[in-house]
Computed example of a mutant assay.
Amino acid sequence: MPRLFIALEIPADVASELTLHRGGLSGARWIEAPDYHVTLRFLGDVDRRTANEVDAMLSDITAYPFQITLDALGSFGGDKPRAVFARVQPTKALTDLQGDIERQMRRIGLPAEGRKFVPHVTLARLRDTAPAEVAHHLGLHPIVRPIAFTARRVALMSSRDSVGGGPYVLEAAYPLGPCYPNRLPREMRR
């Protein structure tokens, strides 16, 4: 069974810029730049039937391309930091897309996502890193100018069962917007 998640990919030039914030943090396992992404919905281990239903649902997405802006670094975990991330400014287009995907996943029988959607790009996973050290690192490596790009497609990705952080495999991509031949409503594709 593949372990799947739905995400927005990070363009190579943006990923390269994010790598400038790497290094100098003990206990950090830095994510490789090609594996950077914004997770919209984690699916987990699913059977082939469910994977096919997810594929069909993603083929019918009606969202248009929209801007993503990364504006700050942060960490998850509070007193026990577990990750360093680049924050994604929430926008109506992003939250609408994520909400639509969540509703569709519940419609095909997947359980509701247990965590609130906090858009971000994970840069490092942390292990036994002191909160003060994380705070110091974040202070030394701020995102000075927001980094923006246009999200043009949604990706269905897989990962091997591991501690996290890749490598990830692009299983399928679904362009946003009506200008692609595969964007016709399902009934008209026959």
Rank of each mutant, 00 (worst) to 15 (best):
A86C: 05
D161G: 05
I6F: 00
D79T: 00
D60T: 15
F42V: 05
R3Q: 15
A15S: 09
R41V: 03
P111Q: 01
L20S: 14
D55S: 08
L170H: 14
Y180D: 00
T19M: 03
G166W: 10
L25V: 11
E9M: 09
L156W: 09
P185Y: 01
H37K: 05
S26R: 15
V134G: 04
E171H: 03
V54N: 12
E17R: 13
L176I: 02
L70F: 10
V144S: 12
G166F: 07
T122W: 03
E9F: 07
L94A: 03
Q67H: 03
S162T: 14
P65A: 07
A7C: 12
P81R: 06
M1N: 08
P90E: 14
L140D: 03
G139R: 06
P185D: 04
M188R: 05
W30Q: 07
I68L: 07
A83Y: 04
D60P: 11
S159A: 05
H136T: 04
E9S: 15
I61M: 09
P11V: 07
D47T: 01
A28L: 13
Y174R: 11
D55P: 01
Q67A: 10
S75E: 08
L138Y: 02
V88R: 13
D71I: 01
A63T: 02
V38T: 02
C179F: 10
A173W: 04
R41G: 06
R115A: 06
Y168K: 13
L126M: 07
R183N: 13
P146Y: 08
R153L: 06
F149D: 12
V118L: 09
A12D: 10
D79S: 10
G77V: 01
E171M: 02
F85N: 00
Y180S: 02
V88T: 10
G164L: 12
E133G: 05
A51K: 07
R87Y: 00
R29D: 09
A172C: 05
G78D: 13
R127G: 00
K80H: 14
L70C: 10
R82Y: 00
L123K: 09
S16Y: 01
R87N: 03
F5M: 03
P175V: 06
R41C: 03
G24K: 04
G23I: 07
S59C: 05
S75T: 12
R125W: 10
R29S: 11
E102L: 12
E187G: 08
P34H: 02
G23L: 09
G166D: 01
I68E: 07
S26D: 14
E17L: 05
R82S: 09
H136R: 13
L123W: 09
S26F: 15
G44M: 03
M1S: 11
A124S: 03
Q104W: 15
G177L: 11
P175F: 03
Y168I: 09
R183G: 08
L20D: 08
G139A: 00
R189E: 00
T150A: 14
A15E: 06
L110E: 02
I68Y: 04
V46Q: 08
A15G: 11
M105P: 12
T50C: 10
Y174E: 05
H120N: 01
C179A: 07
E102S: 14
R145L: 04
S162G: 15
Q98F: 10
T122E: 01
R190I: 03
T39K: 10
G99E: 11
E187C: 06
G27Q: 13
